[in-house]
Design a protein around this nucleic acid. Structure first.
Lengths: 207, 207, 207, 207
DNA sequence: CATGAATGAGAATTCATTCAT
DNA sequence: TATGAATGAATTCTCATTCAT
């Protein structure tokens, strides 16, 4: 008589996978990729090192997935904003706001895209996803230039600068720490204001 | 037995020190901190691994010095621009231009400030210097707000965004690669244009 | 509470045991002991890893049994030939022919006796059985010398050489591959011819 | 002033390499490839594990070299016998005698060719060398058939059987232990006698 | 009883640092 | 003083075995 995997079991398995990724994310956020050794991830996830390898074929794959998951979600949202309703101005603002606000809810996310992982394979994934984010922003800027809302400008340079600006402001070493800012909302607003002005060449009419 | 170092000797020692730092810089630029192992640095410098330790007590100290040297020079120049003649607008533009142009002449410099080193001690130095650069920019922006040239804005956020913007545009993964840009001058100009517009809220009158 | 295993149950148990051994044999034949991990054996047998341990206390015991089963059968047949009718010449020929032909029908069998298992306990079993085979051959050679059919020779050396000769020719790295030989029968014949000549000092009169 | 590596130093380096191979050989001879872990080799060689990697890029390469060294020497000698003076009979006898005598002087040598290494890359080397030995023997047998000294026979089968015969008799599990044989010379002689008779179909006229 | 997820003791490999020559 | 061989701690990954469900 075949043994039937209980629903509980299935949930635990899915849970573990998720737990491992989460543990890895926490460690990266806390101490960079450097601190995210397999043993540490295992401990943080409440598992043994061997178990990590039941869920991921290698350390690199784990981190590639970590970055992929984070990026996928992010890019989906950004793209729906970019392709959505509203003027390019509004969309640009919304895109930056959306990204920064979610990043502040879980800083590690953005961190993973800045910190350089030791493994080249993982780094390659990081770079790829970072580029994908820039591409989405580019499409918004392009639309704004065509509509005449934004001054003419080099798309590649603007997109790169934008990505640099908000990731750094969020969690880079020069970032105004969240505590130094009276509240998250204000930090989000400051970053949005900067980015909008950088592209539009004017301050957004205060809402 | 008293031993007097000859001037020649002293020069050779200083030379070697300099050679080591330069070798380390090249390696970091080429392959990130990951590739900058002591043995590789030694080979690149034309010395033995043991000799590295005659000049630097540890790998970490070598890289702390590397970052310090690079930052010191940079900050001196930026500060002299910040404290110098001209309108804040002109100084802002000059500061960004100066930094980016020199960075393009030796990309590794900027690279060392973005790439996260494995060693926490070294990372701490990187962060410190990066903050110092932001401080200088802040002083320019502050002056511009006071003079009425720049719209009111949060200094910390603006400085952080600026630093993020130009380091990313220079060497980050989303950077328009130097080859993709017809020439260095154009890339410098694009970055300057972005940064100026981001702070000033208008495009610089084309010179 | 007394529990009586039904005959059906018993059969299933015996079945599983047999299935496991067969699975292990296939894996050894395909990729050597190296490939015969418990998980792989379980999959091949259509059981779970845990189940393997219901039938065998350890991996080593499983492989000891595997070798034992293979050897037992082999040796029974060889012994019945050795102790049977016919001249020593005929019996020697028959013994080698019988062994090689069956080995070709399931090469893995012979393989298990050549390939060195990682586990010392298993290796010890392999050696024991290999020696048993040599012993049977020795008895035939002894009879042949006594009857004057075979020239005088050292029994131990001859038996060892014989075992080495046919196992190597069957599946050793220098073995003429079965495909390279027009058909199995020819390979069997070649090996028999060699072995007979080696012991008898003359070619068998072609039948 | 450049530092000059002393002759002593150079010797030590060469020594170490040799020491490592020798240590590996001893371990293989004693307990098979299984016992020859890097840590064990290092200890046996009187070095640290790290040092092994100064001399060999990987464990596999070390063992490939080990086998290569052993085989090269062996095959050179066999080939010079095969291509040398004398009747095929004499050359066959000399070849087997030469191989077996040297193998008895350092059993591990032959052992390395029988024991199956865990690493497929290493195993591939073992097989290659073993085949090379068979090839040399084949050339002698071929000459003997042509000269009419040996009866017609399948070359591939005979060579494979020969290699199997003497490696097994030397160090295989069924081998008459060296101690059980009154002296080495007698064992060598027994093996030669067997092999000659197997190929020639007659006993060598006692010298 | 069957299952297969979890465990954790190894084993290979890397690289900063030391120290005899 | 310069050298670079030697060291060994640290890290990734494997797989036999156990045990909760």
């Amino acid at each position: 008589m075949a043994y039937r995997r209980s629903r509980l079991m299935e949930e635990r398995l899915a849970d573990n996978r998720e737990r491992i990724v989460r543990a890895a994310r926490h460690l990266v956020a806390r101490g960079g990729f450097r601190e995210a050794q397999i043993a540490a991830v295992a401990t943080e996830a409440g598992l043994s090192t061997g178990s990590i390898y039941r869920y991921f074929p290698s350390k690199a794959e784990l981190f590639v997935e970590l970055l992929g998951k984070a990026a996928e979600h992010e890019i989906d949202i950004l793209r729906s904003i970019a392709d959505g309703e509203g003027t390019p101005s509004a969309r640009l603002f919304a895109a930056v706001e959306s990204f920064t606000r979610r990043a502040l809810d879980g800083r590690y996310l953005a961190y993973a895209f800045i910190a350089e992982p030791v493994d080249p394979e993982v780094d390659e994934a990081r770079i790829r996803h970072r580029r994908a984010i820039a591409e989405v922003l580019k499409s918004i800027v392009r639309a704004g230039i065509e509509s005449g809302e934004f001054p003419d400008q080099n798309l590649d340079a603007s997109a790169a600068c934008l990505v640099g600006a908000f990731t750094e402001a969020l969690i880079g070493p020069t970032a105004p720490s969240a505590e130094a800012v009276s509240d998250r909302e204000r930090l989000v607003e400051q970053i949005c204001t900067f980015c909008f002005r950088a592209i539009a060449g004017r301050d957004k009419a205060s809402s």
